[in-house]
Design a protein around this nucleic acid. Structure first.
Lengths: 141, 141
DNA sequence: ATGTAAATGTAACAATGTTGCATTTAATAA
DNA sequence: TTATTAAATGCAACATTGTTACATTTACAT
């Protein structure tokens, strides 16, 4: 666990985010959950901390590219740790990154896929894109 | 304009949604706006109508597959009319449908693209997917 | 060790979305 | 056409989600 904190401190430093005990706790919850989590879940997981500070922390983490939002139609907003390739200029994770929503267990996953299509929209320049997929996950099949 | 109402009445009938003056007004605003609009904009556009009823109307339209949500990270939730192919079983519009957010003018667009990639996630079955792209739109280039 | 800018906690507020219930309306049958 | 009835609406009250202002505390560079 101690090792975990060392890793998280390094994460904050790399993203130029000031290290505080609150932020380490938020990071801890995020890193303990493999899948994207809701603000509500995060709030419940940090009962002794302030809700307003949590919102500000999340905003900072988003701005600095440490976490990303996962938006699935009909589902509440979720957040997840970015893969290491994210940075302040490009908040969108690796192109192989897909958000998958299982219509059976209602769980949301961040997945990596091998072959990513090239998407071309005539007369538009695409800086980044995300893919949201719905279906049945590995566990539910 | 009269013709417009006839078309909208047909739309409601096709989706088995009871026709009311309120719903026709909501549909009118939606069809007058080519791009997805926010709930706030919709509310402002219907000043003499009730906010609660609007939320219920939108829920009904979503459930029946008449409209779809457009979620872009960092942007407020928007809604747009579905293409005619949508139905109650498959709320996700045509596969060629892409949500495009212009980072210059901050406008959101529903676009159709010609070549849609096949997305394969090992051990998962995909029922539908959406693509969210960010970049610079036609007008801003 | 100290100064300073950033982060936090509290309170008050704003925006967004929901529930219960009485009334009105649309669609069906008589 | 009218009566019936289930659905839609409007109102009030409430729940959830997110923000702003400001005084206090903390991190960290010197």
């Amino acid at each position: 666990m101690q090792h975990c904190y060392i890793y998280m401190k390094k994460l904050l430093k790399n993203k130029k985010i000031r290290e505080t005990s609150f932020r380490l706790e938020v990071l801890k919850v995020l890193s303990e959950n493999e899948n994207p989590i809701s603000m509500d879940y995060l709030e419940q997981s940090l009962p002794k901390f302030d809700r307003i500070t949590l919102y500000r922390t999340i905003k900072t983490f988003l701005d600095k590219g440490l976490i990303h939002e996962v938006l699935i139609a009909g589902e509440s907003k979720k957040i997840a740790l970015c893969s290491v390739e994210c940075n302040e200029e490009n908040h969108i994770h690796h192109l192989e990154h897909v958000h998958f929503f299982c219509e059976n267990c209602k769980e949301t996953f961040c997945l990596e896929i091998e072959k990513v299509p090239t998407i071309i929209i005539p007369n538009h320049s695409i800086n980044s894109f995300e893919i949201q997929a719905k279906g049945i996950c590995q566990n539910c099949k």
